[in-house]
């Protein structure tokens, strides 16, 4: 039988659902089916969101620093492993002073990681030393920084406005010199620009070997030609070009006629066609006196 007592709370049947989509739902679905929109939602939106999240994370300076510190720590823990550490420096082929100089200009606090060593920069620093011709740096197994050095060999002593300096055969500065007497074995050159013409100078010094006992040094004149200075204040003025030939001529004359032993001040070879001698003051009178005396003796 049908229940006659009315229930207190009767559940109302839900209103019949309209199967039609609302205008909004319809539009949303159509929008969702638009290929461009879909692609934007699937690719563009995630990219934008991730970029925004990253930007938001890095907007805070503290987080940025923390992340940088973390990266630094990680790097350090790797580079500071014992197999990468360099404990000492070995220098080959350097004299004691150069050795000290190198240790001075390479201020490395050993032990140091090999990742922190910039070998090329260090090589350039070492090669920048005046006394060093060539330098090679490498890290030997066992944590040794090997520095192989080829030193410059001093060839002459150069007296310039800055004092005495040692130069090598190419005219590079090797070291300053306190006194000429410290290196009596090396020939002396002087004059501005002498270092620029060092090969020619050495050649001239070689040629001057026959008069080595009288040879004092070479002087660069006007940064273009050489004077050979001998003792007793004698000078041989060499031309700008063909200086070795001119010097050879003078030496040949000297060997034949003992020209340089006479009372000359200057042998001027600057004009190849007209070599000129300048006698010492008083030498002319002396010469005349001697010749008249001889003539008188001959007459008498």
């Amino acid at each position: 039988m049908r229940p006659l007592i009315r229930r207190r709370s009767r559940v109302e049947p839900p209103p019949l659902r309209d199967p039609a989509p609302s205008r909004l739902a319809y539009r949303a679905e159509r929008l969702w089916l638009t290929p461009l929109f879909r692609r934007f939602l699937r690719i563009g939106l995630p990219v934008v969101l991730v970029a925004a999240a990253v930007a938001a994370f890095f907007a805070d300076a503290g987080r940025r620093e923390a992340l940088a510190a973390l990266g630094h720590d990680l790097r350090q823990s790797f580079t500071e492993r014992p197999e990468f550490m360099v404990g000492l420096m070995a220098i080959d082929g350097a004299s004691r002073e150069v050795d000290e100089d190198i240790r001075e200009i390479l201020p490395i606090d050993f032990p140091v990681s090999s990742f922190d060593l910039d070998l090329e920069a260090m090589r350039q620093t070492v090669a920048g030393l005046d006394a060093v011709a060539r330098a090679e740096l490498r890290i030997r197994p066992g944590g040794i920084l090997q520095v192989s050095v080829q030193e410059r060999v001093p060839a002459v002593v150069w007296r310039s406005d800055n004092g005495l300096e040692l130069l090598d055969a190419q005219g590079h500065r090797v070291a300053p010199l306190a006194a000429r007497g410290a290196r009596p074995d090396l020939p002396l050159v002087a004059g501005t620009g002498a270092d620029g013409a060092m090969p020619e100078a050495l050649h001239l010094i070689d040629l001057a070997a026959p008069i080595a006992d009288r040879f004092r040094g070479l002087v660069r004149v006007g940064e273009r030609r050489w004077d050979v200075v001998l003792d007793r204040g004698q000078r041989i003025l060499l031309p700008e070009t063909g200086a070795p030939a001119a010097l050879e001529r003078v030496i040949a004359l000297n060997q034949a006629e003992e020209m340089l032993a006479r009372d000359l001040v200057t042998v001027d070879m600057r004009q190849a066609g007209r070599p000129t001698l300048r006698l010492a003051p008083g030498a002319i009178e002396e010469f005349r006196r001697i010749t008249t005396a001889e003539a008188e003796a001959g007459d008498g």
């Binding site: 309209d18 199967p19 039609a20 989509p21 205008r23 319809y26 679905e29 159509r30 089916l33």
Partner: peptide
Amino acid sequence: RAIRTAVQAAQK
């Protein structure tokens, strides 16, 4: 509404 229903279902 009926057209919308049909079109949406066919689109789907």
